[in-house]
Design a protein around this nucleic acid. Structure first.
Length: 449
DNA sequence: ATCAATGATTGTGC
DNA sequence: GCACAATCATTGAT
Protein backbone atom coordinates (compact mmCIF):
# COMPACT_ATOMS: atom_id res chain seq x y z
CA UNK A 1 0.00 0.00 0.00
CA UNK A 2 2.67 2.40 0.94
CA UNK A 3 4.61 1.36 -2.05
CA UNK A 4 1.76 2.14 -4.24
CA UNK A 5 1.21 5.48 -2.62
CA UNK A 6 4.80 6.27 -3.13
CA UNK A 7 4.55 5.29 -6.72
CA UNK A 8 1.68 7.58 -7.14
CA UNK A 9 3.72 10.33 -5.70
CA UNK A 10 6.93 9.66 -7.47
CA UNK A 11 5.33 9.17 -10.87
CA UNK A 12 2.66 11.75 -10.86
CA UNK A 13 2.47 11.92 -14.58
CA UNK A 14 1.27 8.38 -14.77
CA UNK A 15 -1.03 8.73 -11.89
CA UNK A 16 -2.60 11.82 -13.27
CA UNK A 17 -3.09 10.28 -16.61
CA UNK A 18 -4.71 7.19 -15.14
CA UNK A 19 -6.80 8.88 -12.53
CA UNK A 20 -7.73 12.37 -13.15
CA UNK A 21 -8.99 12.26 -9.64
CA UNK A 22 -5.55 12.20 -8.31
CA UNK A 23 -4.72 15.29 -10.21
CA UNK A 24 -7.72 17.02 -8.79
CA UNK A 25 -7.05 15.80 -5.35
CA UNK A 26 -3.45 16.58 -5.86
CA UNK A 27 -4.24 20.23 -5.94
CA UNK A 28 -2.83 21.71 -2.80
CA UNK A 29 -5.23 23.71 -0.73
CA UNK A 30 -3.60 26.91 -1.62
CA UNK A 31 -4.03 26.21 -5.29
CA UNK A 32 -7.64 25.18 -4.91
CA UNK A 33 -8.32 28.32 -3.07
CA UNK A 34 -7.79 30.41 -6.18
CA UNK A 35 -10.98 29.30 -7.80
CA UNK A 36 -12.58 32.63 -8.09
CA UNK A 37 -9.73 34.38 -9.89
CA UNK A 38 -9.96 35.94 -13.31
CA UNK A 39 -8.56 34.50 -16.54
CA UNK A 40 -5.03 35.57 -15.95
CA UNK A 41 -5.22 34.29 -12.43
CA UNK A 42 -6.38 30.92 -13.69
CA UNK A 43 -3.58 30.74 -16.16
CA UNK A 44 -1.30 31.52 -13.35
CA UNK A 45 -2.87 28.73 -11.29
CA UNK A 46 -2.54 26.24 -14.06
CA UNK A 47 1.02 27.25 -14.53
CA UNK A 48 1.54 26.68 -10.85
CA UNK A 49 -0.02 23.27 -11.01
CA UNK A 50 2.02 22.30 -13.99
CA UNK A 51 5.06 23.49 -12.28
CA UNK A 52 4.23 21.49 -9.26
CA UNK A 53 3.67 18.46 -11.35
CA UNK A 54 6.91 18.89 -13.17
CA UNK A 55 8.82 19.34 -10.01
CA UNK A 56 7.04 16.75 -7.96
CA UNK A 57 9.71 14.23 -8.59
CA UNK A 58 12.18 16.58 -7.10
CA UNK A 59 10.31 16.65 -3.86
CA UNK A 60 11.51 14.59 -1.02
CA UNK A 61 9.71 11.55 0.16
CA UNK A 62 8.67 13.28 3.29
CA UNK A 63 7.08 16.08 1.38
CA UNK A 64 5.26 13.58 -0.75
CA UNK A 65 4.03 11.76 2.32
CA UNK A 66 2.83 14.96 3.78
CA UNK A 67 0.96 15.76 0.62
CA UNK A 68 -0.56 12.35 0.62
CA UNK A 69 -1.69 12.77 4.14
CA UNK A 70 -3.20 16.10 3.37
CA UNK A 71 -4.96 14.50 0.50
CA UNK A 72 -6.39 11.69 2.55
CA UNK A 73 -7.57 14.05 5.19
CA UNK A 74 -9.27 16.43 2.87
CA UNK A 75 -12.84 16.91 3.96
CA UNK A 76 -14.18 16.62 0.47
CA UNK A 77 -12.53 13.33 -0.18
CA UNK A 78 -15.34 10.94 0.87
CA UNK A 79 -17.91 12.86 -1.08
CA UNK A 80 -15.73 12.96 -4.11
CA UNK A 81 -14.99 9.24 -3.90
CA UNK A 82 -18.65 8.38 -3.59
CA UNK A 83 -19.44 10.45 -6.64
CA UNK A 84 -16.67 8.82 -8.58
CA UNK A 85 -17.84 5.41 -7.52
CA UNK A 86 -21.28 6.24 -8.70
CA UNK A 87 -19.97 7.39 -12.03
CA UNK A 88 -17.91 4.24 -12.35
CA UNK A 89 -20.92 2.08 -11.71
CA UNK A 90 -23.05 3.99 -14.09
CA UNK A 91 -20.57 3.59 -16.89
CA UNK A 92 -18.61 0.53 -17.75
CA UNK A 93 -19.18 -1.45 -14.65
CA UNK A 94 -22.89 -1.62 -14.90
CA UNK A 95 -22.70 -2.96 -18.43
CA UNK A 96 -20.14 -5.56 -17.57
CA UNK A 97 -22.01 -6.42 -14.46
CA UNK A 98 -25.11 -7.20 -16.43
CA UNK A 99 -23.20 -9.64 -18.54
CA UNK A 100 -22.04 -11.56 -15.56
CA UNK A 101 -25.35 -13.28 -15.13
CA UNK A 102 -24.47 -16.22 -17.30
CA UNK A 103 -26.35 -19.52 -17.29
CA UNK A 104 -24.77 -22.53 -15.64
CA UNK A 105 -22.28 -24.23 -17.88
CA UNK A 106 -23.85 -27.37 -19.39
CA UNK A 107 -20.49 -29.07 -19.50
CA UNK A 108 -20.02 -28.45 -15.81
CA UNK A 109 -23.49 -29.72 -15.13
CA UNK A 110 -22.74 -32.90 -17.02
CA UNK A 111 -19.59 -33.44 -15.06
CA UNK A 112 -21.39 -32.77 -11.80
CA UNK A 113 -24.14 -35.18 -12.69
CA UNK A 114 -21.72 -37.87 -13.62
CA UNK A 115 -19.68 -37.46 -10.48
CA UNK A 116 -22.84 -37.60 -8.46
CA UNK A 117 -24.04 -40.68 -10.29
CA UNK A 118 -20.73 -42.40 -9.79
CA UNK A 119 -20.79 -41.58 -6.15
CA UNK A 120 -17.64 -39.51 -6.34
CA UNK A 121 -19.25 -36.31 -5.31
CA UNK A 122 -22.30 -36.13 -3.13
CA UNK A 123 -22.66 -37.30 0.45
CA UNK A 124 -19.69 -38.90 2.11
CA UNK A 125 -19.53 -42.64 2.64
CA UNK A 126 -23.15 -43.07 1.72
CA UNK A 127 -22.57 -42.07 -1.86
CA UNK A 128 -19.87 -44.62 -2.33
CA UNK A 129 -21.91 -47.37 -0.78
CA UNK A 130 -24.86 -46.44 -2.92
CA UNK A 131 -22.71 -46.52 -6.00
CA UNK A 132 -21.31 -49.87 -5.06
CA UNK A 133 -24.77 -51.16 -4.44
CA UNK A 134 -25.86 -49.80 -7.77
CA UNK A 135 -22.94 -51.50 -9.42
CA UNK A 136 -23.78 -54.72 -7.71
CA UNK A 137 -27.38 -54.39 -8.76
CA UNK A 138 -26.34 -53.65 -12.29
CA UNK A 139 -24.26 -56.76 -12.21
CA UNK A 140 -27.35 -58.84 -12.17
CA UNK A 141 -27.37 -59.47 -8.51
CA UNK A 142 -24.95 -62.30 -8.59
CA UNK A 143 -23.71 -63.15 -5.23
CA UNK A 144 -20.36 -63.44 -3.57
CA UNK A 145 -18.53 -63.49 -6.81
CA UNK A 146 -19.43 -60.02 -7.64
CA UNK A 147 -18.92 -58.44 -4.31
CA UNK A 148 -15.41 -59.80 -4.41
CA UNK A 149 -14.89 -58.52 -7.91
CA UNK A 150 -16.25 -55.14 -7.06
CA UNK A 151 -14.40 -54.64 -3.85
CA UNK A 152 -11.30 -53.70 -5.75
CA UNK A 153 -13.30 -51.43 -7.93
CA UNK A 154 -14.87 -49.82 -4.93
CA UNK A 155 -11.52 -49.36 -3.30
CA UNK A 156 -10.16 -47.63 -6.34
CA UNK A 157 -13.27 -45.54 -6.67
CA UNK A 158 -13.07 -44.37 -3.11
CA UNK A 159 -9.43 -43.54 -3.73
CA UNK A 160 -10.43 -41.35 -6.61
CA UNK A 161 -13.16 -39.92 -4.49
CA UNK A 162 -10.75 -39.07 -1.74
CA UNK A 163 -8.31 -37.41 -4.07
CA UNK A 164 -11.12 -35.49 -5.64
CA UNK A 165 -12.37 -34.24 -2.34
CA UNK A 166 -9.00 -33.22 -0.98
CA UNK A 167 -8.19 -31.42 -4.19
CA UNK A 168 -11.54 -29.75 -4.22
CA UNK A 169 -11.08 -28.67 -0.66
CA UNK A 170 -7.67 -27.33 -1.47
CA UNK A 171 -9.04 -25.30 -4.30
CA UNK A 172 -11.86 -24.00 -2.21
CA UNK A 173 -9.52 -23.01 0.54
CA UNK A 174 -7.18 -21.33 -1.88
CA UNK A 175 -10.11 -19.56 -3.44
CA UNK A 176 -11.31 -18.29 -0.11
CA UNK A 177 -7.87 -17.18 0.92
CA UNK A 178 -7.29 -15.40 -2.30
CA UNK A 179 -10.69 -13.78 -2.17
CA UNK A 180 -10.20 -12.42 1.30
CA UNK A 181 -6.76 -11.25 0.35
CA UNK A 182 -8.05 -9.40 -2.66
CA UNK A 183 -10.90 -7.96 -0.67
CA UNK A 184 -8.54 -6.68 1.94
CA UNK A 185 -6.38 -5.25 -0.76
CA UNK A 186 -9.29 -3.50 -2.37
CA UNK A 187 -10.54 -2.21 0.91
CA UNK A 188 -7.15 -0.85 1.60
CA UNK A 189 -6.95 0.66 -1.83
CA UNK A 190 -10.35 2.21 -1.46
CA UNK A 191 -8.69 4.72 0.79
CA UNK A 192 -6.62 6.05 -2.05
CA UNK A 193 -8.86 5.41 -5.01
CA UNK A 194 -12.61 5.17 -5.44
CA UNK A 195 -13.74 1.59 -5.18
CA UNK A 196 -17.39 0.78 -4.88
CA UNK A 197 -18.67 -2.27 -3.01
CA UNK A 198 -20.05 -3.51 -6.26
CA UNK A 199 -16.64 -3.43 -7.76
CA UNK A 200 -15.36 -5.59 -4.97
CA UNK A 201 -18.25 -7.94 -5.50
CA UNK A 202 -17.41 -8.14 -9.14
CA UNK A 203 -13.80 -8.85 -8.45
CA UNK A 204 -14.80 -11.62 -6.09
CA UNK A 205 -17.01 -13.18 -8.69
CA UNK A 206 -14.19 -13.03 -11.19
CA UNK A 207 -11.96 -14.83 -8.76
CA UNK A 208 -14.62 -17.43 -8.14
CA UNK A 209 -15.03 -17.96 -11.82
CA UNK A 210 -11.34 -18.46 -12.30
CA UNK A 211 -11.22 -20.95 -9.51
CA UNK A 212 -14.28 -22.75 -10.68
CA UNK A 213 -12.65 -23.22 -14.04
CA UNK A 214 -9.81 -24.91 -12.24
CA UNK A 215 -12.35 -27.00 -10.39
CA UNK A 216 -13.89 -27.92 -13.66
CA UNK A 217 -10.58 -29.26 -14.82
CA UNK A 218 -10.37 -31.27 -11.66
CA UNK A 219 -13.84 -32.61 -12.23
CA UNK A 220 -13.03 -33.44 -15.78
CA UNK A 221 -9.94 -35.38 -14.93
CA UNK A 222 -11.82 -37.12 -12.14
CA UNK A 223 -14.49 -38.15 -14.57
CA UNK A 224 -11.86 -39.45 -16.91
CA UNK A 225 -10.31 -41.43 -14.13
CA UNK A 226 -13.66 -42.92 -13.21
CA UNK A 227 -14.34 -43.82 -16.81
CA UNK A 228 -11.01 -45.54 -17.10
CA UNK A 229 -11.66 -47.36 -13.88
CA UNK A 230 -15.03 -48.43 -15.08
CA UNK A 231 -13.77 -49.71 -18.35
CA UNK A 232 -10.94 -51.43 -16.59
CA UNK A 233 -13.05 -53.17 -14.00
CA UNK A 234 -16.48 -53.36 -15.40
CA UNK A 235 -15.85 -54.11 -19.01
CA UNK A 236 -17.47 -57.48 -19.48
CA UNK A 237 -14.82 -58.54 -21.93
CA UNK A 238 -12.22 -58.17 -19.31
CA UNK A 239 -14.30 -60.06 -16.84
CA UNK A 240 -15.02 -62.94 -19.10
CA UNK A 241 -15.67 -66.19 -17.37
CA UNK A 242 -16.10 -69.41 -19.16
CA UNK A 243 -19.44 -71.03 -18.83
CA UNK A 244 -19.70 -73.97 -16.57
CA UNK A 245 -19.34 -77.34 -18.19
CA UNK A 246 -22.94 -78.06 -17.55
CA UNK A 247 -24.07 -74.86 -19.16
CA UNK A 248 -21.98 -75.53 -22.23
CA UNK A 249 -23.42 -79.00 -22.41
CA UNK A 250 -26.97 -77.77 -22.29
CA UNK A 251 -26.32 -75.17 -24.90
CA UNK A 252 -24.50 -77.59 -27.13
CA UNK A 253 -27.25 -80.09 -26.77
CA UNK A 254 -29.75 -77.56 -27.89
CA UNK A 255 -27.53 -76.39 -30.68
CA UNK A 256 -26.87 -79.80 -32.15
CA UNK A 257 -30.42 -80.94 -31.74
CA UNK A 258 -31.57 -77.89 -33.61
CA UNK A 259 -28.79 -77.89 -36.08
CA UNK A 260 -31.09 -77.30 -38.97
CA UNK A 261 -32.31 -74.15 -37.39
CA UNK A 262 -30.20 -73.16 -34.45
CA UNK A 263 -32.07 -70.01 -33.69
CA UNK A 264 -33.70 -70.33 -30.34
CA UNK A 265 -36.74 -68.20 -29.78
CA UNK A 266 -36.87 -65.70 -26.99
CA UNK A 267 -38.63 -68.18 -24.77
CA UNK A 268 -36.14 -70.89 -25.61
CA UNK A 269 -33.31 -68.54 -24.86
CA UNK A 270 -34.83 -67.63 -21.59
CA UNK A 271 -35.31 -71.23 -20.69
CA UNK A 272 -31.80 -72.13 -21.70
CA UNK A 273 -30.47 -69.27 -19.71
CA UNK A 274 -32.46 -70.44 -16.74
CA UNK A 275 -31.29 -74.00 -17.16
CA UNK A 276 -27.71 -72.93 -17.50
CA UNK A 277 -28.03 -70.42 -14.73
CA UNK A 278 -25.86 -68.32 -16.86
CA UNK A 279 -26.66 -65.14 -15.10
CA UNK A 280 -25.00 -66.18 -11.94
CA UNK A 281 -21.45 -66.01 -13.02
CA UNK A 282 -21.78 -64.35 -16.34
CA UNK A 283 -21.80 -60.94 -17.60
CA UNK A 284 -23.16 -58.67 -15.31
CA UNK A 285 -22.32 -55.19 -15.95
CA UNK A 286 -24.99 -54.04 -18.19
CA UNK A 287 -27.91 -51.80 -17.83
CA UNK A 288 -30.28 -52.79 -15.11
CA UNK A 289 -32.95 -53.29 -17.69
CA UNK A 290 -30.82 -55.52 -19.79
CA UNK A 291 -31.68 -59.17 -19.91
CA UNK A 292 -28.16 -60.38 -19.46
CA UNK A 293 -28.93 -64.05 -19.58
CA UNK A 294 -30.73 -63.91 -22.85
CA UNK A 295 -28.11 -61.70 -24.26
CA UNK A 296 -25.47 -64.15 -23.23
CA UNK A 297 -27.35 -67.03 -24.76
CA UNK A 298 -27.65 -65.03 -27.92
CA UNK A 299 -23.96 -64.39 -27.84
CA UNK A 300 -23.31 -68.04 -27.37
CA UNK A 301 -25.49 -69.07 -30.27
CA UNK A 302 -24.10 -66.33 -32.43
CA UNK A 303 -20.59 -67.43 -31.77
CA UNK A 304 -21.50 -71.06 -32.10
CA UNK A 305 -23.24 -70.67 -35.41
CA UNK A 306 -20.49 -68.68 -36.93
CA UNK A 307 -17.74 -70.90 -35.65
CA UNK A 308 -19.53 -74.04 -36.56
CA UNK A 309 -20.14 -72.78 -40.03
CA UNK A 310 -16.59 -71.61 -40.41
CA UNK A 311 -15.11 -74.93 -39.60
CA UNK A 312 -17.63 -77.67 -39.62
CA UNK A 313 -14.95 -80.30 -39.67
CA UNK A 314 -13.62 -79.13 -36.40
CA UNK A 315 -16.98 -79.54 -34.75
CA UNK A 316 -17.69 -82.97 -36.12
CA UNK A 317 -16.46 -84.75 -33.10
CA UNK A 318 -18.44 -82.55 -30.84
CA UNK A 319 -21.47 -82.97 -33.02
CA UNK A 320 -21.09 -86.71 -32.80
CA UNK A 321 -20.81 -86.57 -29.10
CA UNK A 322 -23.93 -84.58 -28.64
CA UNK A 323 -25.73 -86.58 -31.26
CA UNK A 324 -24.97 -89.65 -29.28
CA UNK A 325 -26.02 -88.03 -26.11
CA UNK A 326 -29.30 -86.86 -27.46
CA UNK A 327 -29.80 -90.19 -29.14
CA UNK A 328 -29.35 -91.97 -25.89
CA UNK A 329 -31.72 -89.61 -24.22
CA UNK A 330 -34.22 -90.14 -26.94
CA UNK A 331 -33.74 -93.83 -26.79
CA UNK A 332 -34.51 -93.87 -23.14
CA UNK A 333 -37.47 -91.71 -23.67
CA UNK A 334 -38.75 -93.78 -26.51
CA UNK A 335 -38.10 -96.98 -24.69
CA UNK A 336 -40.14 -95.72 -21.87
CA UNK A 337 -42.79 -94.67 -24.25
CA UNK A 338 -42.81 -98.03 -25.87
CA UNK A 339 -43.14 -99.74 -22.58
CA UNK A 340 -45.93 -97.52 -21.57
CA UNK A 341 -47.75 -97.95 -24.78
CA UNK A 342 -47.55 -101.70 -24.57
CA UNK A 343 -47.04 -101.76 -28.25
CA UNK A 344 -48.09 -104.64 -30.40
CA UNK A 345 -47.71 -105.61 -34.06
CA UNK A 346 -44.53 -103.87 -35.03
CA UNK A 347 -45.49 -103.05 -38.51
CA UNK A 348 -44.10 -100.63 -40.95
CA UNK A 349 -43.84 -97.20 -39.55
CA UNK A 350 -45.19 -94.15 -41.14
CA UNK A 351 -44.26 -92.90 -44.52
CA UNK A 352 -41.60 -90.91 -42.85
CA UNK A 353 -39.74 -94.04 -42.07
CA UNK A 354 -36.93 -92.89 -44.24
CA UNK A 355 -35.85 -90.68 -41.45
CA UNK A 356 -36.27 -93.13 -38.67
CA UNK A 357 -33.71 -95.34 -37.15
CA UNK A 358 -33.33 -97.95 -34.58
CA UNK A 359 -33.71 -95.92 -31.53
CA UNK A 360 -33.72 -98.62 -28.94
CA UNK A 361 -30.55 -99.97 -30.36
CA UNK A 362 -28.66 -97.03 -29.18
CA UNK A 363 -25.55 -98.99 -28.51
CA UNK A 364 -25.22 -99.98 -32.09
CA UNK A 365 -26.00 -96.55 -33.13
CA UNK A 366 -23.29 -95.17 -31.04
CA UNK A 367 -20.89 -97.68 -32.49
CA UNK A 368 -21.96 -96.71 -35.91
CA UNK A 369 -21.42 -93.13 -35.22
CA UNK A 370 -18.03 -93.78 -33.90
CA UNK A 371 -17.19 -95.70 -37.01
CA UNK A 372 -18.64 -93.00 -39.11
CA UNK A 373 -16.53 -90.37 -37.66
CA UNK A 374 -15.35 -89.41 -41.05
CA UNK A 375 -18.81 -88.59 -42.16
CA UNK A 376 -20.34 -87.10 -39.19
CA UNK A 377 -22.80 -84.91 -40.92
CA UNK A 378 -25.17 -87.75 -41.21
CA UNK A 379 -24.48 -88.90 -37.75
CA UNK A 380 -24.73 -85.59 -36.17
CA UNK A 381 -27.79 -84.81 -38.07
CA UNK A 382 -29.37 -88.07 -37.21
CA UNK A 383 -28.51 -87.68 -33.63
CA UNK A 384 -29.26 -84.07 -33.66
CA UNK A 385 -32.72 -84.67 -34.79
CA UNK A 386 -33.48 -87.45 -32.47
CA UNK A 387 -34.32 -85.36 -29.54
CA UNK A 388 -36.40 -83.02 -31.48
CA UNK A 389 -38.33 -85.91 -32.83
CA UNK A 390 -38.82 -87.72 -29.65
CA UNK A 391 -42.22 -86.35 -29.14
CA UNK A 392 -43.41 -87.07 -32.61
CA UNK A 393 -41.79 -90.45 -32.50
CA UNK A 394 -43.51 -91.24 -29.33
CA UNK A 395 -46.67 -90.33 -30.99
CA UNK A 396 -45.90 -92.46 -33.98
CA UNK A 397 -44.85 -95.38 -31.89
CA UNK A 398 -47.93 -95.15 -29.88
CA UNK A 399 -49.87 -95.33 -33.02
CA UNK A 400 -47.95 -98.01 -34.78
CA UNK A 401 -46.26 -99.69 -31.95
CA UNK A 402 -43.25 -100.19 -34.14
CA UNK A 403 -40.10 -98.67 -35.41
CA UNK A 404 -37.90 -99.40 -38.29
CA UNK A 405 -34.27 -100.02 -38.45
CA UNK A 406 -33.54 -97.27 -40.79
CA UNK A 407 -30.15 -96.25 -39.69
CA UNK A 408 -28.45 -96.58 -42.99
CA UNK A 409 -24.83 -95.67 -43.10
CA UNK A 410 -25.39 -93.59 -46.13
CA UNK A 411 -27.73 -91.06 -44.81
CA UNK A 412 -26.55 -87.69 -45.77
CA UNK A 413 -26.52 -84.62 -43.74
CA UNK A 414 -26.54 -82.32 -46.61
CA UNK A 415 -24.89 -79.48 -44.93
CA UNK A 416 -28.04 -78.66 -46.31
CA UNK A 417 -29.22 -76.59 -43.59
CA UNK A 418 -26.34 -74.47 -44.57
CA UNK A 419 -27.19 -72.76 -47.76
CA UNK A 420 -24.75 -72.11 -50.50
CA UNK A 421 -23.59 -68.93 -48.90
CA UNK A 422 -23.28 -70.71 -45.68
CA UNK A 423 -26.31 -69.31 -44.03
CA UNK A 424 -28.97 -71.16 -42.12
CA UNK A 425 -31.72 -68.90 -43.21
CA UNK A 426 -32.57 -70.84 -46.33
CA UNK A 427 -32.86 -74.07 -44.51
CA UNK A 428 -36.29 -73.53 -43.22
CA UNK A 429 -37.65 -76.74 -44.50
CA UNK A 430 -40.62 -77.68 -42.48
CA UNK A 431 -40.08 -80.53 -40.16
CA UNK A 432 -41.80 -83.77 -40.86
CA UNK A 433 -41.32 -83.17 -44.53
CA UNK A 434 -39.23 -86.08 -45.48
CA UNK A 435 -39.26 -86.37 -49.15
CA UNK A 436 -38.93 -89.87 -50.51
CA UNK A 437 -36.25 -88.71 -52.79
CA UNK A 438 -34.00 -87.93 -49.96
CA UNK A 439 -31.56 -90.25 -48.43
CA UNK A 440 -32.84 -92.67 -45.89
CA UNK A 441 -31.19 -90.90 -43.05
CA UNK A 442 -31.95 -87.39 -43.98
CA UNK A 443 -34.21 -86.58 -41.16
CA UNK A 444 -35.40 -83.09 -41.20
CA UNK A 445 -36.40 -82.07 -37.87
CA UNK A 446 -36.76 -78.43 -37.90
CA UNK A 447 -38.12 -78.15 -34.50
CA UNK A 448 -38.48 -74.53 -34.19
CA UNK A 449 -41.13 -75.01 -31.59
C1' DA B 1 5.42 -67.71 -22.58
C1' DT B 2 2.53 -69.36 -26.12
C1' DC B 3 -1.60 -70.50 -28.25
C1' DA B 4 -6.19 -72.28 -28.97
C1' DA B 5 -10.72 -71.71 -27.12
C1' DT B 6 -14.21 -68.70 -26.01
C1' DG B 7 -17.37 -64.97 -24.28
C1' DA B 8 -18.27 -60.26 -25.56
C1' DT B 9 -18.21 -56.20 -28.48
C1' DT B 10 -18.30 -53.61 -32.73
C1' DG B 11 -19.46 -52.56 -37.40
C1' DT B 12 -22.31 -53.67 -41.30
C1' DG B 13 -26.21 -55.12 -43.92
C1' DC B 14 -30.85 -56.31 -44.21
C1' DG C 1 -33.61 -55.18 -34.08
C1' DC C 2 -31.39 -59.27 -35.56
C1' DA C 3 -27.75 -62.00 -37.70
C1' DC C 4 -23.34 -62.18 -39.32
C1' DA C 5 -18.42 -61.33 -39.58
C1' DA C 6 -14.46 -59.56 -37.65
C1' DT C 7 -12.17 -58.54 -33.75
C1' DC C 8 -10.96 -57.91 -28.91
C1' DA C 9 -9.67 -59.61 -24.43
C1' DT C 10 -9.45 -63.15 -21.30
C1' DT C 11 -9.05 -67.99 -19.84
C1' DG C 12 -6.91 -72.26 -19.44
C1' DA C 13 -3.95 -75.82 -21.17
C1' DT C 14 0.68 -76.74 -22.74
Amino acid sequence: MDDQSRMMQTHPGVSLAGHSVQGGMGLPPHVQGHEGADGDGRKQDIGDILHQIMTITDQSLDEAQAKKHALNCHRMKPALFSVLCEIKEKTGLSIRGAQEEEPPDPQLMRLDNMLLAEGVSGPEKGGGAAAAAAAAAASGGSGSDNTAEHSDYRAKLSQIRQIYHTELEKYEQACNEFTTHVMNLLREQSRTRPISPKEIERMVSIIHRKFSSIQMQLKQSTCEAVMILRSRFLDARRKRRNFSKQATEILNEYFYSHLSNPYPSEEAKEELAKKCSITVSQVTIKGPKHKCSEHTVSNWFGNKRIRYKKNIGKFQEEANLYAAKTAVNAAHAVAAAVQNSQANSPTTPTSGSSGSFNLPNSGDMFMNMQNLNGDSYQVSQVGANVQSQVDSLRHVINQTGGYSDGLGGNSLYSPHSLSANGGWQDATTPSSVTSPTEGPGSVHSDTSN
